[in-house]
Nucleic acid binder design. Structure first.
Length: 803
DNA sequence: AGCACGCCGACT
DNA sequence: GTCGGCGTGCTC
């Protein structure tokens, strides 16, 4: 009986659904579940995750080759969480386990060829000229990778080398080239005691370079060698000073951290009684190692962040770790600043826009316990932490918590699962909790904690709703209604700032012929093309193909072709015309390329460089600028007409968030909402900032139509390049699903129907929906249906939109 | 996901 | 006759 390791190979293929068995050689007998290893797989080498070690018969099995780290990456809780994710979201264990790695693949595996040690004396007379050259090259240069050989000998190198390997003249070895190695940099450190510096410098009258360097070193404990060029100091100077014993060169690990400069010296605030009570409840659970979840319902400005900070402080005092999630990468810096001010280097940032190396360093610091607080977007949930005390989701209602790639998990669900395994607390914070969340809180699954008032004593903004239909009826066709214009003028005159939000979702700037009604659409994706005024191009948002905007209608030849709709660019132009004195800054996907661009715009705006901030969704979130007293929402309801049961929830949350940006300082705020549906409950409750009224409306609608939280939805998308075949496949799948689920009550299978975006990049898409009251039973049955787990079927459990 | 194996068209 | 296209099927 030998030790057999059950291994999940790190390949995200839907068809690889079971672990593989490998023999553990004696020297790797220490391996247990959780180790990352290198294994032979088919004709190549692969990273594998050990999920179990058993005793068994080794015949016919290959061996585990090596470990990839000196300790297991996954602990028991992480393994269990990965298993939970794979069952909950019907994905492979490999896909779930990959979430925990700082890069998708932790290692790059390369084959190296070397001259065989037994070569001496072997007869090589029968080799070709070329083969002999390769052999000589390897003998001279030492081991070489396949890439290297191909560069040296051209594309035939591999056939050449294979012959040599067959004849045992060359050995093929593999090496796990670690993509992730700590980075070291040389630094200079002053060896002169501070009290003698002045005296030493006084003697340097004739050594100006040395004097400059002394002065620079005096100011800080370490000076990076790479900064010397800026100071105009040569290596020679350094060498001389080193020889004179004035300084030393040391090598120190550099942590790659884009957020290194965030958050210094901000005062902590004193908690209100409600905040104190919330902190106490949550802290108690952390102390007792009880898994519990809390909904922290507080309007914008009610001080949720301070509660988070205190709760995290409790966890850290008890030696436990904390995860703080934000819905979007752009919002991390807000929280990082606050948290670093309190916790300093104990904070690490983790999100997918960091370089792999930055992520790796963050993981390293957590694993070494050099830090215990992780702040980031979804992916921070999978940080390598051994004893989590609390997981916080800020703005928990945000749809971005749902991952739209495989595995399509929801961060809220995963947070609750991870916390349950770790006996940790979960805090779900929001001004407008998700309908599901609030429902669960009222049912007693979460404890509801409410922060009623704005902490600075500010009052809610005064909201005006403008009926755009009436505006149109009076012949006013502008994007900006008179009440909004008036608000902006008054705000600017008072020296205050305004935010203008353009809710562009599902609206876009399509091109329409006013004569024949033709709309320019992408021939590959069946969506309308978006007009870019800056270069007069039309672009498809799905496949990114561009084409010049036409002067006349391609269908009827009319010249009355109009660039319709309202993009940020168009609003910017109109604002500039109405308010020539305004300094406007635009923030949207086009102006926020790069991980810190968003921060820069907000910082400039907060510093008063601009007086109007114009943009999409992202202007509505996460910042707190005291001088902003006005918010205008160009079209409140563009999302209301999408065929999606969460449309109202989206709209309400956006209105509330946006309105909450106004009047956060001492000055009162004013908001203008422009809408074509002033009577809709989402718009009305949003204008009144009345969450409960919205919730009650919405929950009865959900119950009536058997939507979540009363049912669970599973969506299948069948893809194919041939429409007929995709349709046929979809119908076969529906039949299989119906057969498998027939015995489960309260379960409907809907479809197939063509997806509303039924063609993306020339691929046709058919949707199938399952609505059920017993999703556990449904998922169990579905997991046994092999035909679902093919590359042409996408599975989305709890889809965020059903389109 | 890769990679091998296998079965049909255009070339030396 | 061969090189090479990409459709299945397998990987402990």
């Amino acid at each position: 009986m030998a030790k057999i390791a059950q291994i999940i190979v790190n390949i995200p293929a839907q068809t690889l659904r079971t672990p593989f068995s490998y023999v553990l050689p004696e020297e790797l007998g220490f391996i247990t579940a959780g180790w990352r290893v290198l294994v032979p797989f088919g004709s190549r080498w692969q990273e594998g995750f050990v999920v179990d070690v058993v005793k068994g018969d080794p015949t016919g099995l290959k061996e585990v080759h090596a470990v990839l780290e000196d300790s297991p990456w996954f602990d028991d809780n992480m393994l269990q969480l990965a298993k939970w994710i794979s069952e909950r979201y019907l994905c492979t264990l490999a896909a779930a386990m990959r979430l925990f790695l700082p890069g998708k693949t932790g290692v790059k595996i390369k084959t190296f060829y070397a001259v065989s040690p037994f070569l001496n004396g072997t007869d090589v007379a029968d080799l070709t000229q070329e083969q002999r050259k390769v052999l000589q090259y390897l003998a001279d240069q030492g081991p070489a990778s396949a890439d290297q050989l191909r560069r040296e000998f051209g594309p035939t190198a591999l056939t050449l080398i294979r012959k040599l390997v067959d004849r045992k003249l060359v050995t093929a070895g593999i090496q796990a080239a670690k993509a992730n190695v700590p980075k070291y940099q040389p630094y200079l450190r002053l060896l002169v005691p501070p009290e003698q510096v002045a005296a030493v410098m006084a003697e340097m009258a004739h050594k100006p370079a040395q004097k400059r360097l002394m002065a620079a070193l005096q100011a800080r404990p370490l000076l990076a060698m790479s900064d010397l060029a800026k100071l105009k100091i040569s290596r020679e100077t350094v060498k001389r000073m080193e020889a004179a014993g004035l300084l030393e060169v040391i090598r120190q690990q550099v942590l790659r951290d884009s957020y290194a400069d965030y958050g210094v010296g901000q005062p902590d605030l004193i908690l209100s009684p409600e905040q104190r009570q919330a902190v106490n409840y949550i802290s108690q659970c952390i102390g007792e190692r009880k898994s519990a979840s809390f909904v922290l319902h507080g309007i914008t400005g009610s001080g949720k962040t301070q509660v988070y900070i205190e709760v995290v402080a409790t966890a850290r005092r008890l030696g436990r770790q904390a995860i703080v999630l934000v819905p979007e990468i752009a919002l991390t810096s807000q929280l990082v600043t606050r948290f670093k001010a309190r916790f300093g280097a104990d904070v690490v940032v983790m999100h997918s826009k960091l370089s792999i190396r930055e992520r790796f360093d963050a993981c390293q610091r957590l694993r070494e316990k050099a830090a215990g607080i992780v702040i980031g977007a979804r992916s921070a949930l999978f940080a390598p932490l051994s004893d989590i005390g609390v997981i916080i989701l800020d703005e928990e209602h945000e749809f971005t918590y749902k991952q739209e790639e495989i595995p399509r998990y929801h961060a809220r669900e995963v947070a609750l699962a991870r916390a349950a395994l770790a006996q940790a607390a979960v805090v779900l914070g929001s001004a407008t909790p998700a309908i599901e969340t609030y429902y669960n809180a009222l049912k007693g699954k979460h404890r509801l904690l409410t922060l009623p008032a704005r902490i600075d004593g500010g009052s809610l903004p005064e909201v005006t709703v403008v009926d755009m239909r009436a505006e149109l009826a009076q012949g006013r066709r502008g994007v900006i209604s008179p009440p909004l214009k008036e608000l902006l003028v008054e705000t600017l005159q008072a020296g205050e700032q305004a935010i203008v939000l353009l809710n562009r979702r599902g609206y876009a700037t399509f091109v329409l012929c006013r004569e024949c009604g033709h709309v320019m659409t992408c021939p590959h994706c069946a969506v309308s093309l978006v007009y870019y005024a800056s270069n007069r191009m039309l672009r498809c948002h799905y496949c990114q193909r561009q084409q010049p905007a036409p002067d006349e209608c391609p269908r009827c030849g009319s010249r009355y072709i109009r660039f319709f709709g309202t993009g940020t660019e168009r609003v910017e132009q109109e604002l500039a015309k109405l308010l020539p004195q305004a300094r406007i800054v635009r923030m949207d996907q086009d102006t926020t390329v790069g991980k810190l661009a968003h921060d820069r715009i907000l910082r400039d705006f907060a510093a008063g460089k601009y007086n109007i901030l114009l943009g999409t969704q992202m202007v509505a979130k996460g910042h707190d600028i005291a001088n902003v007293t006005a918010v205008g929402i160009i079209t409140a309801d563009t999302a209301l007409h999408l065929p999606d049961f969460r449309a109202a929830e989206r709209t309400f949350a956006l209105l509330t968030q946006a309105a909450g940006r106004a009047g956060r300082g001492k000055k009162p705020g004013r908001v203008v909402i422009q809408t074509y549906n002033p009577e809709h409950y989402a718009v009305q409750s949003g204008a009144e900032q009345d969450y409960l009224s919205f919730y009650h409306h919405e929950i009865s609608f959900r119950q009536e139509l058997f939507y979540p939280p009363f049912s669970d939805i599973i969506k299948f998308t069948v893809q194919g390049s041939a429409e007929q075949r995709a349709w046929q496949r979809a119908q076969e799948i529906v039949q299989a699903i119906e057969a498998a689920l027939s015995a489960i009550p309260a379960t409907q299978v809907i479809g197939p129907f063509p997806a509303p975006l039924n063609k993306i990049k020339d691929i046709y898409r058919m949707n199938i929906l399952i609505k059920t009251g017993d999703s556990i039973a449904v998922r169990q049955r579905l997991a046994a249906l092999d035909q679902l787990f093919n590359p042409d079927v996408l599975i989305d459990v709890d889809p965020i939109n059903v389109m």
